[in-house]
Nucleic acid binder design. Structure first.
Lengths: 204, 204
DNA sequence: TTTCGATCTGGACGGTGCTTAGATAACACC
DNA sequence: GGTGTTATCTAAGCACCGTCCAGATCGAAA
């Protein structure tokens, strides 16, 4: 429509401030952590007044949600790449490694998802992480799995990796990581031990 | 040392303000949600000036941590009760149900744990939730499980229930809950499906 | 009784999310 | 090209936040 190149000598009207605000938010998140992610800081980073963002987002929460949505998009991208490059067996590892590589973003993502009690949906199936998990499970089951079991299993899998993504950062896990020779090995080991605890569920 | 009964006509020196502040924090969390949990609101609720809490907690974070620690104590208590009343097979259910019964508290608990990157330890083993999980797993395995496998399995179990506690609140799960006839049934079903997704991990 | 240290108040500082009023510039139309 | 319309941005201000400080209050040791 207009874009005057989005640079050079602040032309009062920014051109694409919405995009610039999202970029600024990501910069702040990665540089200063999620606590520093204030609306005013984002505006400052983008070089505009504190009130400017309100013409592009209804409130702070809406900006955060947009950041979160972008984060989920990137997460799903990482998962899709993992399937393409290493097969569906690496899905869980890719998930946890994304969360560890972008801890502040991951936190903002779930903070938003929690308060909205909703999960950013991706329009195309091949870019929806949960859909990828379902496909992997269906493939592993040789197609012989009904829809209900598939849904429940996918949620169980998502729960496991999300829980592990959060818990593995606690210092309680540090000795195990060292023992196993690195975070990656630790994550793999835990994910492979997930079925064992189910034994305690069967025997009652 | 002194306690003048902690009631009746504000005697300038409160008597046990520290305890009163923690109680006030819990009241606010349950009544107004985690976003309303400000230091000033806690002081207001306890009927003291905004600066009073600083004589009992170094800063807001320290107050939150105390609340979180209390929360983990109650969670572990709930888990211990579940084992006593229904056997170790109900541990996961008890965990998720606690998180759902106290959503705001649960959120504060993990917010604190995350920022400290540490997990409030409980001094006595019989009151440590992770210890309960280990015992349940060891019992289910008939004692034939080495220490490493036990640790990894316990972390996998904790990851699953923590993840499920968060994810099951998303509206994506609502249709499944309805289909299965309630949240409790849904949680049980997901926990029982956890092993199936592991199939996708084996076949590579 | 005097002193002392712990506890609490009132007031202040900078930072926050958000609102309102007004300045600025890009666009659509004549 | 001149005109008005509309979206965008700024400046100023509101109430609230976490935190600090000087001083009032009080319990207990000396």
């Amino acid at each position: 429509m207009h874009e005057p190149a989005a640079a050079a000598a602040k032309p009062y009207h920014h051109g694409d401030l919405r995009r610039a605000l999202l970029d600024a938010a990501l910069t702040i998140i990665e540089r200063d952590g999620p606590a520093a992610l204030t609306l005013r800081a984002v505006a400052r980073e983008a070089g505009v007044s504190p009130a400017a963002p309100y013409h592009h987002f209804h409130d702070k929460n809406e900006l955060m949600s947009a950041v979160a949505k972008d984060g989920f998009r990137r997460l799903n991208e990482a998962m899709a790449n993992a399937v393409k490059e290493s097969g569906p067996g690496e899905l869980g590892l890719a998930y946890v490694e994304f969360a560890h590589a972008n801890p502040a973003l991951y936190r903002v993502m779930y903070d938003c998802a929690r308060s909205a009690e909703t999960f950013p949906e991706q329009s195309e199936k091949e870019h929806d992480g949960l859909e990828l998990v379902k496909q992997a499970i269906a493939k592993a089951a040789g197609g012989k799995i009904n829809e209900l079991d598939l849904e429940l299993t996918a949620i169980a899998a998502w729960s496991s990796v999300h829980g592990l993504a959060e818990i593995s950062r606690f210092d309680k896990c540090a000795p195990l990581k060292e023992l196993l020779g690195g975070e990656r090995a630790f994550i793999k080991a835990v994910l492979e031990h997930a079925p064992m605890f189910l034994a305690t569920k069967r025997e009652h």
